[in-house]
Design a protein around this nucleic acid. Structure first.
Lengths: 156, 156
DNA sequence: ATAGAAGTTAAAGTTAACTTTAAGTCAAGC
DNA sequence: GCTTGACTTAAAGTTAACTTTAACTTCTAT
């Protein structure tokens, strides 16, 4: 069942998946993908990994972190090529999360609209200030650092 | 016009704005805010800075990077409290960018929907694979590193 | 006058997602 | 037999947005 032709060297896997070899090694340290070793300690990736790699990349485009992706992939079989059903479950779940992010952004957008004309940046009760929705974290950079200190309001 | 009461020590500015003193110093190195120095080399922030700091925080919630925020703030007066008109211009521009991000996300969502049932992760021409829309960069982490290598397709 | 709170700077640490570099191993072709 | 190309690991570098630490200095109140 598992013929040698089913396995790719890291360089070939890189070419076929479109990601750098260093990235593949990195993904492996993060448990996102797996390999077997052959003589000389060289890695060999099963062809099924190619699809796994593709899924990872798609998920990143959708805005998920590697940590989240790893968690999602843990629900998939490692060595078996994910079935249509597997992918359906994953993508449905991701779709819901995407919807949530869109909703969050729209809420923020509404709040901003309400604030555009009013000059309310001077007000203590500006909805934008006191909004604690999950929308923070959508931008770039490490959001986990933000909000460490409780936000006591602008006081102006 | 500029009375001493108009100036705050860094600790007071931190308390009133809700951000840590270290953050204020950091923002200053990035040119986001400014201060004057009094005896003993201590910083003093003009009260107008409080509003500037608030704007920075709001913009971050909206998902903008400090670099983008700095650029936007450069269109504002430094020492003068931003007027309602100033804020209107800023927030309008930010609103448009928010709209764009929402649109991008929705496009992505549509593509995902189209792919949920079809099992197309196995296809070379899956729209999700070959989507090069600006939606990448909405997630966490440094997206500038992604896409360095041209994406030659999954090949599976 | 002196303790303690608050300030100052420079440098290093943190997280994510990788890349780059250094130094060495292996296999294949000529 | 030897060069070349592909591989391996471990460690350090990169960016963003801060925080933490170290080593001092200064202000404030008693």
């Amino acid at each position: 069942m598992k013929k040698p032709e089913d396995y790719l060297a890291i360089g070939d896997a890189a070419k076929r998946s479109g990601v750098a070899t260093s990235t593949l090694r990195f993904y492996e340290t993060r448990g996102l993908i797996h390999s077997i070793r052959v003589s000389g300690n060289h890695r060999r990736y099963h062809r099924a990994m190619l699809r796994r790699i593709s899924i990872i990349r798609v998920a990143q485009t959708l805005g998920f972190s590697l940590r989240e992706i790893a968690a999602a992939l843990d629900t998939l079989p490692d060595q078996r090529t994910p079935t249509k059903r597997d992918w359906e479950k994953l993508s449905t779940s991701w779709g819901k999360q995407l919807d949530q992010r869109i909703t969050d952004l729209q809420n923020l957008r509404d709040k901003l609209s309400g604030c555009i004309g009013c000059g309310c940046l001077s007000l203590k009760r500006c909805t934008l200030y006191n909004s604690d929705d999950g929308a923070a974290g959508l931008g770039a950079g490490p959001r986990y650092l933000l909000g460490d200190e409780p936000w006591s309001g602008p006081g102006d």
